[in-house]
Design a protein around this nucleic acid. Structure first.
Lengths: 237, 237
DNA sequence: GTGGCATAGTGTCAAAAGTACAATAAAGCC
DNA sequence: GGCTTTATTGTACTTTTGACACTATGCCAC
């Protein structure tokens, strides 16, 4: 009667990091010699883990990220569940699964979480992570383990959809930022150019973006005014 | 090492039906005498079931709905996964779980699916369903089992968000419909009034809403022109 | 067959939002 | 002081949105 007595559930996190060099995603490289592409390059994957029996989904995603980055309090949001019965049955993934799981043949359903961090203020260096973890530019992600390319694409789509509607851009920027930085973020994430004057006109209508009495320092050009986000101010918008 | 050896996974479906009387959701009443509210009213819930071990999530949702309504091919879309470790631990739900599950104490994570059917053309009568199934107006849904009220709210929100962006209104209307019906649908789902002339102006810009050479019949007033959706036409919009 | 009833159908004007576009200002460097 | 680099600002035009009220057509009752 319990038809899925031995089904496993995991979370996979697409953690996006942003800085002036662009939008990146955190990937893990497996060190197993056997777990490589045909070229011999190590296989990368999104950080993820089976959830613990007493742990909520969101909690599980927080744990996975904390174990890798030692960072707490990052923005995290569920975006989709992936449950194809064959999603962990691909030949390329079998050897590695056998080496790390006690039940490598179990079906695994996974819930995808989207995470956001700024790489400006505090930079969670790959060096501080468990070995084999790195930030990879979103445009340079190769083939990943399992169905992680699909999951990543789902995450990117969710990020794009939410950027404008959910006031989450500040999760990717330093606490104090310039309007040019904000514009560059929008252009990077949405793959689209904005007119500078029109963009600034729109920002001035957002009451949660507040100008500071402070200017950029140490740049060899006219310093820009700094702004910050005031999350309390997100009302009538 | 398998930390969730005995975790269960289910799907729950919020199937919405629409007709001139409004937007309704399909609910199941349990017949167990012990599974009631304090008032003695039977407890209602969203249709759902544990997924089978070789079955995809979407497939599982289709199966659950087919078993209840005998209808295939309804629009179905995943919207959120619910994984609170205590979501099936509430006192009110225990007795019923013990009566239908071999492992009633197992944690159950569920994936919510949103379904849409038109109650105009073909009406899946509750009578044709397994006993105790009924359409309940969306504004008259009482307390449901487990966390099904949250799930239903999530489904309503997803429906509202997708109505405008995803061209799904035709899933809720008869194949041939009037513009007044379309407008009433929007007003019901979005809880918002629209101006008749402006609404029609906008519809005329949607190339996938095509006018037919046919008029309403059997009404005791000026018959309206009929329209239909052409899904192929969904391009540049 | 006329008058009443119910819903269908239609256009204009003003306000708001969006879009295209270029010159001046301020800081660091040499 | 002149050069380089990025910041900052406004205007004219177009498009979209929003408010608003009367005529048309079919059925029914009398």
């Amino acid at each position: 009667m319990p038809p899925n007595e031995s089904l496993h559930l995991s979370v996979d996190c697409a953690l996006f990091g942003y800085d002036d060099q662009g939008l990146k995603v955190l990937l893990i490289n497996q060190k197993e010699d056997t777990y490589t592409h045909e070229s011999g390059q190590p296989m990368s994957q999104l950080p993820g883990d089976l959830i613990l029996i007493e742990e909520g989904l969101h909690e599980a995603a927080e744990r996975v990220l904390f174990e890798l980055t030692q960072v707490k309090g990052v923005y995290l949001k569920q975006f989709h569940a992936y449950g194809d019965p064959n999603r962990v049955k691909d030949h390329k993934d079998r050897a590695w699964l056998r080496s790390v799981r006690t039940m490598p043949d179990q079906r695994v359903v996974t819930v995808g979480y989207l995470g956001l961090v700024s790489l400006h203020d505090y930079n969670p260096q790959p060096a501080s992570f468990a070995g084999g973890v790195s930030w990879v530019d979103i445009n340079e992600v190769g083939p990943l383990a399992f169905d992680h390319n699909s999951i990543l694409n789902g995450a990117i789509e969710a990020l794009q959809n939410q950027l404008e509607s959910h006031h989450i851009s500040f999760e990717l920027l330093p606490k104090k930022f310039t309007l040019s930085q904000l514009q560059a973020l929008y252009e990077t994430v949405l793959h689209k150019k904005f007119d500078k004057r029109n963009f600034r006109k729109n920002v001035k209508k957002m009451s949660h973006v507040v100008p500071l009495d402070e200017k950029q320092q140490g740049v060899m050009h006219k310093p820009a005014q700094l702004f910050s986000f005031n999350p309390d101010q997100i009302e009538n918008e």
